[in-house]
Design a protein around this nucleic acid. Structure first.
Lengths: 225, 225
DNA sequence: TCCTCTTTGTGTACGCTGTACACAAGAGCA
DNA sequence: TGCTCTTGTGTACAGCGTACACAAAGAGGA
């Protein structure tokens, strides 16, 4: 804090992360860079790991620089959260894409619903940090259909589930009368299991058992909806 | 921090909370008191509101005093979490108790399962802070059947659900082959809905709609299990 | 009663966080 | 060239968890 007051422009090897030593003074795209640093942090440690000072440190920028692009840490986290939701949407879309329209629309509809569920569960297991971040509880919630949270189809995870349910109705697999609100029921089940698996009593259960439970759960939803 | 250095034993009206000005030097039961302060904090603000310094402040004790009773904030939070789980168990038991053994054991079993589900959902809505705390993600997890987390019956919420499912099997309402792991499926659904209601898109939905969804969800579980 | 030991609360200090405010470097435009 | 707006810097503060040394007071024995 004092000593001989060496000029603070010294290499700063204490910072732990390579400060890229940009020479332009302006960073160029700090907003995006912060977002990406935040995502990297979230992947590893979930929402609470998205710490403003660490993100700026990784970019070799002073903490306050972040405030030119985000009003607060909360706001940065909101951005990271949107990215996490988008990643989840993409994961679901990927699982959905090989499901070409089958000749039996009913089978196809069921297969698609199942695909949404299992992609969701797999994402929760493989990208736990992002998953937790995607559902981190933020204050207020405008959260209305922000395209930032969507996948390549333009739909966010919730909407992808809704679309799958719509197909179930079209395929005659789900009575239209039961359709309203069905996404909440289906989502509840799958999301609940995801949580049970990543921090609940099912944490460290063997993979095989989890897969089995996943299948049974999706079955339960199909049957009970 | 400096000024005239008034004697620090002054009333300290800045503390915001009445410092009870105990004169015994020893508090007497600081551990319990901290736990209770922690619970009060959790009720209002969930797990992240359980802040060590605030708890000690409320008791008119210096922050470090807490370390004589809890190894860390995490450890205090663990205690609060156990209390929250216990409160949930009690809430479930309360809902269960008026259900006297009916002459139709099958009906009774279904009624009990339903009671567990609706008590769970109601608790999540009425005691959101405690609910969130009960399922806060803590590091490691010994978490094995600690009686601290149980209700008056000695069973924790998870075990209460298991017991309800056992009765379903006894009553012939659930094939025994489906029993293993069924608590995970049922719990997933109900817990997922609870989360959807307290911080998901169902937050601020009208009470009536939530109740309706709750019923439909429990139905879905019964039917699909 | 006095002495000693152990328990439990106190004082001080550190590093970390988010963030407010004034300032400076540089880009874009006149 | 000079002006202005944007964006990064410096300094500062309060709040957090927590480490370490110290002190007050019970508990137990002499």
């Amino acid at each position: 804090m004092d000593s001989v007051h060496i000029k603070p422009r010294a290499p700063r090897s204490k910072g732990r992360r390579r400060p890229p030593r940009r020479r332009t003074y302006r960073h160029g795209d700090l907003r995006r860079a912060l977002l990406e640093a935040g995502i990297a942090l979230a992947r590893v440690g979930g929402p609470e790991a998205v710490v403003l000072r660490e993100a700026t440190r990784r970019l070799g920028v002073v903490p306050n620089a972040a405030y030119r692009h985000f009003a607060s840490r909360q706001e940065l986290l909101r951005g990271v959260r949107a990215a996490a939701l988008s990643a989840l949407a993409v994961a679901i879309e990927k699982e959905l894409s090989p499901l070409a329209p089958s000749d039996l629309p009913a089978d196809m509809a069921r297969a698609r619903l199942r695909a949404v569920g299992s992609a969701y569960l797999r994402f929760a297991q493989k990208e736990t940090g992002l998953f937790r971040t995607a559902f981190a509880v933020l204050d207020d919630a405008p959260t209305a259909a922000d395209p930032e949270m969507a996948g390549e189809s333009g739909l966010n995870p919730f909407q992808l589930l809704g679309a799958a349910l719509d197909r179930m109705v079209e395929g005659g697999e789900l009575p239209a009368a039961r359709r309203p609100g069905a996404e909440y029921l289906a989502w509840s089940a799958v999301h609940g299991l995801a949580i049970l698996m990543i921090d609940g009593p099912l944490r460290r259960s063997p993979r095989a058992q989890l897969d089995d439970l996943g299948h049974r759960l999706v079955e339960m939803v199909e049957k009970g909806l």
